[in-house]
Structures are given as structure tokens and as C-alpha cells.
């Protein structure tokens, strides 16, 4: 169960090697957490994340294998995660995703389809599998990692942006569908974050770090804000960006 401050005891992370998700866990009161389930693919990275979390005070960290290219098996992954968490889940972090390079997507139907599967189809299928469990337990919190890239899609990362736009929209609708059941869904829209995902890219203005995003997410988890920008300044910035004529948008740097 969660406590009066929203502190969870049982956490499932879909995308258990995500630097953002792990930064969020490390920004939480880990000594208050009874069980963390990391679902991911890279076993070495999962083991490292597990060791780091245990070292930081988490009582137990379980690992579940997740293959994001196989959405038809998402419900098995969810079942395994909930079971590993002990039947109840206070917090689910949805951080499955890949960035990729737009040049590799442009002329490649298979790569494009895979990006959409990993970033949108799998998370959406997993959320659908999770829904009856959350509704039945009558409470819970789901934090979905979207991106400002999906707020207004641009040429430089069109495929990634489109997948995040799809996931973002799905999560917003999902939030409404579970609201009456006492379940809180929050959609996090980070800007450019310096992680292994963005290694080699030139950070644009207002870029940030996983630690900054984590701090903002942890603060947001004390409340019920549906959409969370990180850094926060991106909310007003993108409310203007959305209104720019395409001719202007096209020429913006970054």
C-alpha cells in the first residue's frame, strides 16, 4: 500500500534498464520500498540495476524478462510482474522505449514498424493487460514516460516522435478510463535528456539530466497532475511551439 505521502511499497518498472526510470527509483525513499520488479531485456544491465537498488536500500528487487518486440506476450509479462510484486502494485513505471536515428527509419519499413511496436504497441498492450488488475485493486499509480518529441513531431526524430505521440494519447485516454477506479495515471514529457539513448547527439537548449527529471517526477507523484513536463519550463514553451506555423517550426534549431 502507499502511505499518506504517496510513498509506494511495491513497484513494477516496465523497461527496467531505462535510465530515467532508474533515476526516479533512486530519487525515492528506497528504504520504504518492499519490492521492486524490473522488467527488461538486457540481463547484464538488469543485474547492475538490481545491485544498485539493493545497495541503495530497497528490500527486494526481482527481475522479469520482457521482449518489447513481442506485444502478443505482453499480458504474460504483466502477470509475471504482478505476481513477483506480491499480487498488489502501488506504482507502475512505463519506460519501455528506443530512440533510433531518423536516417535509419526513413527508408526502412521493418525498422519503422519495430520502433512503433517497441515504443507504442508493447506499452499499450501492457497497459491494457494491467487495467483489470488496477481496477480490481481499487488504487494505484501509473507513470508513463512520453516525450516532448510527441507533443509536436519534427523532422529530426519523426518516427520516435510519432510513437511517443501515440503513446501519450493512449495514456491520456487510459487515465480517464481508470480514474473512477481510484487509479492515478501521470504522463511525463521530458525534453532532451542526456542519457545513453542520446549519446552522440548535440544537446539542444533546455536539455536536462535524468536526475532533474527524476526529481520532478518524484515531486509530481505526491499529487495527481495528469501531464508532467521535465524541466517544467517546457510546458509554456511547448504551448507556444504547438501554435507556430509549420514554416517557422521547421527552421527551429535542435
Amino acid at each position: 500500500m502507499r502511505d499518506a505521502f504517496g510513498q509506494p511499497q511495491r513497484i513494477v518498472v516496465l523497461g527496467g534498464t531505462s535510465e530515467l526510470a532508474l533515476a526516479v527509483l533512486h530519487a525515492m525513499a528506497l528504504d520504504r520500498v518492499q519490492c521492486i520488479v524490473l522488467a527488461g531485456r538486457n540481463e547484464d544491465a538488469l543485474a547492475r540495476a538490481q545491485a544498485a537498488l539493493l545497495g541503495a536500500g530497497a528490500a527486494a528487487v526481482q527481475i522479469v524478462h520482457l521482449e518489447a518486440t513481442a506485444p502478443e506476450r505482453a499480458s504474460e509479462v504483466i502477470a509475471a510482474c504482478v505476481e513477483a510484486a506480491g499480487g498488489q502494485v502501488d506504482l507502475v513505471l512505463v519506460a519501455v522505449g528506443m530512440l533510433g536515428s531518423q536516417g535509419d527509419f526513413d527508408d526502412d519499413p521493418a525498422a519503422t514498424a519495430e520502433a512503433i511496436t517497441v515504443n507504442l504497441t508493447w506499452p499499450a498492450a501492457a497497459l491494457a493487460a494491467l487495467r483489470p488488475r488496477l481496477v480490481a485493486q481499487g488504487y494505484g499509480r501509473v507513470v508513463v514516460f512520453s516525450s516532448v518529441a510527441g507533443v509536436r513531431v519534427r523532422r529530426a526524430n519523426a518516427t520516435y516522435g510519432a510513437t511517443k505521440a501515440g503513446l501519450d494519447g493512449f495514456a491520456l485516454g487510459y487515465a480517464e478510463s481508470v480514474r473512477d477506479a481510484g487509479v492515478v495515471v501521470q504522463v511525463v514529457r521530458p525534453g532532451f535528456v542526456a542519457t545513453k539513448m542520446t549519446t552522440g547527439l548535440t544537446p539542444p537548449p533546455m536539455s536536462t539530466t535524468p536526475e532533474v527529471v527524476a526529481k520532478i517526477v518524484v515531486e509530481a507523484m505526491a499529487g495527481t497532475d495528469l501531464v508532467v513536463y521535465a524541466p517544467r519550463v517546457l510546458r509554456p514553451v511547448f504551448s507556444i511551439f504547438k501554435l507556430l506555423p509549420q514554416a517557422v517550426w521547421r527552421k527551429l534549431p535542435g
Binding site: M1, R2, D3, A4, F5, G138, Y139, A181, G182
Partner: peptide
């Protein structure tokens, strides 16, 4: 019937 409940402090609202 399903209802939202919390304690007097209104900190942990759930459905039951």
C-alpha cells in the same frame, strides 16, 4: 456499490 473512500486526513483515497 463501488465508492471512493479515505480516512479523516483524506490522504489515501481508494475504491472499494
Amino acid at each position: 456499490i463501488p465508492r471512493r473512500l479515505s480516512g479523516w486526513g483524506r490522504t489515501q483515497s481508494v475504491r472499494a
